[in-house]
Design a protein around this nucleic acid. Structure first.
Lengths: 332, 332
DNA sequence: TTGAAAGCGGTACCAA
DNA sequence: TTGGTACCGCTTTCAA
């Protein structure tokens, strides 16, 4: 493989000059430039990012750390991240860490060795201190789907509490008179917010009892199992607000087995509005998070951090939107 | 950030020695080693992969090129690739190229600059010559979900024709008497195979007419639209074999709107058995490709190619398996 | 068992 | 406008 020296020799100039035309930096005579460009073509010269990285420039590589790319929320984020990254000349390393703190740290270590320029991370296991440490090591980080409001960390989440209220309000409007909530892991602040949104509207209802809230794990099977559990205790539930769409799908599957019709007997609404919501039958109502937008914004901000532009490191909350589909339709 | 020189100075040894303990290569006195290891810890030394890459070793990075990570088939592959890669110390770069040859080439160029060690690619647009060229540039490639039987290229696909036969046979066994096939892009050999499998069993049927085969695009909307089209022409279709699960879901959505019950009025079967198949209601019958296995095998073989172990570069076909679920259940 | 030094392929400063 | 050259951080002979 041709090197910059090969090019310089064949073009009869110095490597410095070749470097200049390569980077369009500094003065280069028009003709010289053309010669060099020509030689590059002839030699099929491809500059080594590794070498330029070593010589001081950045690696143009960022990492996307997610619990599990199979969870359909993340491919949508990944897609956005990758689109923006690619358009800015960055490359994306994909890391799955399965909510396993050890694997997570292992990965971070590996990323440090690679001297990546930054990280976008979605994690319920990472501690704010770890992120601060990363920044101290001058590796910018953007956190998505979780916020650390009391730390100077750039986080991107949605208006979870408001979204939850929208969902529950909608169920009430549709005539539901006993609404359950299946939540994700409540020790996570942003997950808790959704449960709080539910409580905001339901706590004062005559039918409300705490056992209408069940904590689960954001997975489809969790939604499935929790539903069985809920309906054993409260056979008269007529509305379910699931903490995310994946669990909502589990809810629908469970209801189907219980012989309950959606939306006739029970109305179901999820959260996130992943593409899956439009794939199931009946189509799932949901609270739309701007997933692509979150990914896009995350990457744009990360690049800003990398290039040293001024960005305020704090928790940003994006707008959500109620999306009504068949799973909460009027039961005529 | 500490460098190998910092370590060597503080430990009172040469960089060569530090390098040796780093790589556990060559002789190092037990005590010296411990000293060095200690200093590394104190300095929080993290070797630069970039530098070692430049100095001759590999980048320990491979690329996964897919049309679109949002297509649920690919996260499953990605997951496998990443698992194996990580366990061998490799890092995975994710590339979406949207079936856009230009973007694809653009990416390959970028990957060359990064001097990645190898590529796993799923593409219907790439030409065998491009892959051969890559290998000539000493970048090993493993192709998945597509085969180039007449080229010395390592490809991993499933027994598509046999799988299609299994699917259609099953529909026939379940009593279907007019079966349609919605296929993917037929110009791709492996896609064609599925259509041929369908024809193997249907061509001789009294009800068969060529217009029962519709070409589509492997996307959910394609399956949806094709179904509308098919039922306009043939309202009496009672079985649909979709070329992949995504289209099968589109089929079910379309049938739902047409007022046809699945599986009572029409039975539906897909291909791939992505996790989505178990998420929809009714659950989708499918022909199971060992997706995780394909990804795993792809990565294992890629590593073998990278490390120069002997691998026969040819098209391998993996076994498939019929998975019966609700969408083709008996209509009692 | 250890060290000196020549790269690896670029960048960028300083002179010319 | 151009060239010479000292690095960047690590690996790998070759000698000692």
């Amino acid at each position: 493989m041709a090197t910059i020296r090969d090019v310089s020799k064949l073009a009869g100039v110095s490597v410095a000059t070749v470097s200049r035309v390569l980077n369009k930096s500094g003065y280069v005579n028009k003709e010289t430039e053309e010669t060099v460009l020509g030689v590059m073509k002839t030699l099929d010269y491809i500059p080594s990012e590794m070498a330029r990285g070593l010589a001081g420039k950045s690696t143009s590589t960022i990492a996307l750390m997610v619990p599990d790319i199979i969870n359909p929320f993340f491919p949508e984020v990944a897609r956005a991240i990758e689109d923006v990254a690619h358009s800015y000349g960055y490359t994306v390393i994909l890391c799955n860490f399965d909510n396993n703190p050890e694997k997570e740290m292992n990965y971070i270590q590996m990323l440090k060795r690679k001297r990546i320029d930054g990280i976008v991370i979605a994690s319920y296991t990472i501690q704010p201190e770890q992120i601060l440490q990363l920044e101290k090591d001058s590796i910018p980080v953007v956190v998505i789907d979780r916020s650390f409001p009391s730390h100077p960390i750039l986080c991107l989440t949605s208006k979870n509490r408001e979204g939850a209220r929208l969902a529950v309000k909608h169920l009430l409007d549709q005539g539901c008179r006993k609404i359950a909530h299946i939540s994700g892991p409540l020790h996570v602040h942003d997950v808790k917010e959704r449960a709080l949104g539910y409580e905001d509207l339901c706590r004062e209802q005559p039918w409300f009892v705490p056992s209408l809230i069940v904590q689960s794990d954001f997975h489809i099977d969790g939604g499935y199992d929790s539903t069985k559990e809920l309906f054993t205790r409260h056979p008269d539930i007529d509305g379910v607000f699931a903490g995310n769409d994946l669990m909502a799908v589990g809810v629908m599957k469970s209801l189907n087995e219980l012989g309950k019709k959606v939306p006739k007997d029970v109305k179901v609404i999820g959260f996130d509005d992943i593409v899956l919501a439009r794939m199931v039958i009946p189509e799932l109502s949901s609270v739309k998070q701007p997933i692509y937008g979150i990914g896009k914004l995350a990457m744009e901000n990360l690049i800003r951090l990398i290039t040293g532009e001024s960005v305020i490191k704090k928790a940003y909350e994006l707008d959500v939107e109620l999306v009504v589909r068949q799973s909460t339709a009027d039961s005529e």
